[in-house]
Amino acid sequence: MRGFSTNAIHAGQEPDPTTGAVIVPIHASSTFAQDGVGGLRNGYEYSRSANPTRTALQECLAALEGGRHGFAFGSGMGASDVLLRVLLRPGDHIVIPHDAYGGTFRLVDKVLTQWGIEYSTADLGDVHALRAALRPTTKVVWCETPTNPLLGIADIAAVAEASHAGGAKLVVDNTFASPYLQTPLALGADVVLHSTTKYVGGHSDVVGGALVTSDDEVAEQIRFTQNSVGSVPGPFDTWLTLRGAKTLAVRMERHSDNAERVAEMLGAHPAVSQVLYPGLATHPGHEVAAKQMRRFGGMVSFRVAAGREAALAVCAGTELFTLAESLGGVESLIEHPAAMTHASVAGSALEVPDDLVRLSVGIEDVDDLLEDLRGALGRL
């Protein structure tokens, strides 16, 4: 079996048979010549249905997650939408995390409920809470681990066992961990989701999403539905994502190195009341994370002791940490989830603390990042 970085560089990416090009070309063609009526050349006819550049990315992502089938989408939410169309029908029930990503909550709460889908929230870090949330109509358990933005940890194997015992499929949003740090399919998940905009792409220059599964029936339904609704990425976006995937392993090591130092510094700072990072021994999910993750990743959240206005001041007071949404790029970002990425959950059971700050720790020199954060906190 090939190693992770070997797959990232080579899976689906053999040199072009015609030209010998080492890098997969950008196949910017909307249509493909057929060898007679209905005679598709290597399975390609129209780029909504399949494109050679997209095929290369999909094969790469499937290899990285240890799955048989990979699908690339125009965004992570596009991937989520197609998957839930496949797995749910009117009258079905889905369990989502009690601290789910705001976009996932919005899709379920504002869109799917209009089509007769019901949902409950549960702390998936507590398997007993999950079992209590399951219903006879539950068809999907939607898991994030680590969660966004509270960095909660769920035991994927235990959640998979409970989900399957209840007759539900387990979907794991693996965006925060990336396939380098965690492979949910090996732990019992049925489908893995990524916003490839984040760590897989890694350079804040492309939006995309992905699904990976080894379930042949689900894969065929995803393929049909994706083609039917047209939720596909363009060839250039696909190529950028594939380029990013090649360096995922080395980037995730540096992200993790830097985040560990940042979390340690924040934990000792008097202006910080709590640090949320699964790499800390004090994190309630630390032991589970250490069991199922290679490292603990580049995302760190913390609460500012002086409250909301102080948290906003920290977000506005950094120089190297850019005030911006999204995450997973080589550059460090800072944001206020309650007012930015998670504004859609305001007033709901999923509302996040207004003194919370979320960091996407990049791969800059860590001493510079520490100095930047100390300066912002010191000005409070």
Results as ranks from 00 to 15, higher is better:
Arg85Ala: 11
Phe105Gly: 02
Ala160Asn: 08
Val95Glu: 07
Tyr199Ile: 02
Gly91Trp: 06
Gly201Ala: 14
Thr183Trp: 09
Thr121Val: 14
Gly201Ile: 05
Gly91Arg: 07
Leu150Lys: 14
Glu217Ile: 09
Gly91Phe: 07
Val86Asn: 05
Gly103His: 12
Val192Leu: 09
Tyr199Phe: 14
Pro146Tyr: 03
His164Phe: 03
Leu112Cys: 02
Ile222Pro: 09
Thr137Gln: 15
Leu124Asn: 04
Val95Gly: 03
Gly152Phe: 02
Ala177Glu: 04
Arg135Lys: 15
Thr175Val: 12
Phe224Thr: 14
Leu134Val: 12
Gln221Ala: 14
Ile117Met: 05
Leu181Val: 02
Val206Glu: 11
Ile117Arg: 07
Val191Gln: 00
Val192Phe: 09
Leu193Arg: 08
Ser120Asp: 12
Asp205Ile: 09
His128Asp: 15
Gln226His: 07
Ala189Tyr: 02
Arg135Asp: 11
Leu151Ala: 13
Val200Leu: 02
Pro146Met: 01
Val218His: 05
Arg85Asp: 14
Ile94Gln: 03
Ala132Ile: 10
Trp115Ala: 14
His194Thr: 03
Pro149Ser: 13
Asp190Phe: 03
Ala157Asp: 13
Thr104Ser: 12
Asn174Phe: 02
Pro179Glu: 01
Val192Asn: 08
Leu107Gln: 12
Val172Gln: 00
Leu124Gly: 00
Arg223Ser: 10
Val229Glu: 08
Phe105Glu: 01
Tyr101Val: 11
Ala160His: 06
Gly208Tyr: 07
Thr121His: 09
Ala133Glu: 12
Val86Pro: 05
Arg131Lys: 15
Arg131Phe: 10
His164Gly: 02
Thr113Leu: 11
Gly209Tyr: 06
Asp216Gln: 09
Arg135Ser: 13
Ala100Tyr: 03
Gly201Trp: 02
Lys139Gly: 09
Gln221Cys: 08
Pro90Tyr: 04
His194Leu: 15
Leu150Met: 14
Gln226Thr: 02
Glu220Asn: 08
Val171His: 00
Gly202Pro: 04
Asp215Ser: 05
Leu124Ile: 06
Tyr199Cys: 13
Thr225His: 10
Trp115Asp: 13
Lys198Ala: 12
His194Ile: 06
Val86Gln: 07
Lys110Trp: 00
Cys143Leu: 15
Tyr199Arg: 12
Asp92Arg: 01
Asp92Gln: 00
Val140Ile: 10
Lys198Phe: 15
Pro184Asn: 11
Gly116Val: 04
Val111Pro: 04
Arg106Asp: 15
Ile117Lys: 00
His128Leu: 13
Leu187Asn: 05
Asp92Met: 07
Val140Thr: 03
Ile153Lys: 01
Val229Thr: 12
Val159Gln: 03
Ala129Lys: 07
Gly152Ser: 14
Thr104Ala: 13
Asp190Arg: 05
Ile96His: 03
Asn174Thr: 00
Val229His: 06
Leu112Lys: 08
Gln226Lys: 15
